[in-house]
Every structure is written in structure tokens, then in C-alpha cells.
């Protein structure tokens, strides 16, 4: 007993215990994330193809892809896709959160139901969207024709911009609940007293929103946008299922192109370079997260 006590005490010192407690996370993240990531970055600096190690060529793969118009198109659309989708999710997510933050009959089931898009397996919900966006069988087109809003079926995916915006809408659909729930949490953390004080000062609803709600929601906004942007920028499943990068590469993004080059085409080095390149954008995003967390 006496011999164990000092050992326990030493174990309990913040320094030792601290390292001990972060060990599991460190093993998982170093072994299964950092190490493969370094391997991936290394691949991007070589001429590796599938089954062949290749030679070190420095930044040549990056030079090649930046000269490639398809890559530049993919990079541009990735960013455009992310910006539009994030903006849409933010706006609609906040609106939905403001609605759900009120007590009304059925608010509980509404909250659960509204989360469905985020919960459903993406591959399968993308298949349902394929039907809703179908040029011949779209139930949406059918409904709009019935309502006399349009005359013929909408060609959602048949033109470059049609396909791009359709994908953005589907992405908003999937990510909106994530924003809504985050904002709902943010709203519940705001003290009611603030609003009462504002009401006494004669502020109307919009003024209260601008002066109280929005400023207090800013930290969570940063976090939601940053985390969600990372997901959106590296979205794969949705685009691969719905358009496969088409028509004529209009909806190609970093991940679809990397997949096509590295996996189907076997050009591991170049594929890795394409996959690694968005990390630049993500480091910028991560910087904002880290900063906002530090500020707290």
C-alpha cells in the first residue's frame, strides 16, 4: 500500500497524467491520420503509379496540374461550390434555427424531422435526388407543370450551370440541418435578459437581431462555417453519384478529379497532388477556427 501510493501520486501529477490521457488520441491520429497524410504528400512529390514507387520529382506534379485547364476548372468550381453552399446553409440554417427556437405545438418532432437530411446516408439520398432532378421523370417538374409555373420539364443536370446549381442545392439540403442545430444551440445560450433590456429601450425585432443575436452568434458562425466548409470542399459522394463530374467536366471538383486520376487512371503521384492541393484552403479555414477558439 505504502509503495503504491507514491506511484499513484506521481501518475496523478498533471504532467504525467496529461500525457497519459492524450496518448490514445495521439496513437489514433498519428498512426491512422498523420502518417498516411505524410505518405500522401510524399506520393504527390513522386511519379508513382499504381504498383510502382516512382521517383522523386519535387513539385513537378503541382506544376503539371496547375497548367491543366481541367484542374483549374475543378479548383474554381470547388471554391464556388463551397462558397455558394456555405452561404445558403448559413442563411437558411439561421432562419430555421430562429423558427425552431420558439415553443410551438410539435416543435420536438419538427426538430427531429428537420435533421433527417443530415442523418440519411448520403449515397442513398443522392439516389433519391437523382429522380427528383431527372429530365424525364422529375416529380418536381411534374408538380410545377401542374401548377402552371412551367411548360416543360426542367433540365436540371443537362447544362453546366444547371448541374452546378443543382448540386449546390442538394449540398445545402444536406448541410442545412447541421447549421440549424448549431445555431439553435447558440440561440439557447443567449440570455433572455438581453432581449428584455432591448425591448425596454424600444428596439424592434430586427434591431434586436442585429445588435444582440447576430453578434453573439458570430463565434459559432465561424466554427460552423469552418467545419462545414471542410466537408463541402472535399465533398465526393454527392457529386460522384449525381453527375460523375459531368456534363463535360462542368462539375468536376478536387476529389472527383483526384479519384479519377489516381484510382481509375493509376497516376498516383498526380492524383495525390490534386488531393493535397485543397489543403491550402483548409489551412486558412482551420486558422480561423483555432483563432476563434483561442479567443474564448
Amino acid at each position: 500500500m505504502t509503495s503504491r501510493a507514491p506511484l499513484l501520486a506521481r501518475l496523478d501529477s498533471p504532467r504525467v497524467l496529461g500525457y497519459l490521457l492524450i496518448t490514445p488520441a495521439a496513437i489514433i491520429l498519428l498512426g491512422l491520420l498523420a502518417y498516411p497524410l505524410l505518405l500522401g504528400i510524399w506520393l504527390s512529390l513522386t511519379t508513382a503509379t499504381i504498383g510502382k514507387t516512382g521517383e522523386f520529382v519535387g513539385l513537378q506534379n503541382y506544376a503539371t496540374i496547375f497548367a491543366d485547364p481541367i484542374f483549374r476548372g475543378a479548383a474554381l468550381f470547388s471554391v464556388f461550390y463551397t462558397v455558394c453552399a456555405e452561404f445558403g446553409k448559413l442563411l437558411l440554417g439561421l432562419t430555421l434555427a430562429l423558427l425552431l427556437n420558439q415553443r410551438f405545438r410539435g416543435y420536438r418532432i419538427s426538430r427531429a424531422l428537420m435533421l433527417l437530411p443530415w442523418v440519411a446516408p448520403t449515397v442513398l439520398s443522392a439516389l433519391a435526388w437523382l429522380w427528383l432532378l431527372d429530365p424525364q421523370f422529375s416529380a418536381l417538374s411534374w408538380l410545377l407543370i401542374r401548377l402552371h409555373l412551367i411548360h416543360s420539364n426542367i433540365d436540371f443536370l443537362g447544362s453546366g450551370w444547371g448541374a452546378r446549381f443543382s448540386l449546390i442545392v442538394v449540398n445545402i439540403w444536406r448541410g442545412l440541418p447541421y447549421f440549424a442545430i448549431g445555431y439553435l444551440a447558440g440561440l439557447q445560450g443567449i440570455s433572455k435578459d438581453l432581449y428584455e433590456a432591448a425591448a425596454i429601450d424600444g428596439a424592434d425585432g430586427w434591431q434586436a437581431f442585429r445588435r444582440i443575436t447576430w453578434p453573439l452568434l458570430l463565434p459559432i458562425t465561424t466554427i460552423l462555417v469552418a467545419f462545414s466548409s471542410i466537408f463541402t470542399l472535399t465533398d465526393f459522394q454527392l457529386i460522384w453519384t449525381i453527375t460523375h463530374g459531368g456534363p463535360t467536366d462542368a462539375t468536376q471538383v478536387f476529389t472527383t478529379l483526384a479519384y479519377q486520376r489516381a484510382i481509375s487512371g493509376g497516376q498516383l503521384g498526380e492524383g495525390a497532388a490534386i488531393a493535397v492541393s485543397p489543403i491550402v484552403f483548409m489551412v486558412i479555414l482551420a486558422y480561423f477556427v483555432v483563432r476563434s477558439v483561442r479567443e474564448k
Binding site: 431527372d134 429530365p135 420539364n153 456534363p247
Partner: peptide, 10 residues
């Protein structure tokens, strides 16, 4: 209309 958005099942 819409063949540019067709996949294999369309």
C-alpha cells in the same frame, strides 16, 4: 431533352 445529364440508368 436532358441527355447531357443522363447517367447509365437514364
Amino acid at each position: 431533352d436532358g441527355v447531357a445529364g443522363w447517367d447509365d440508368s437514364s
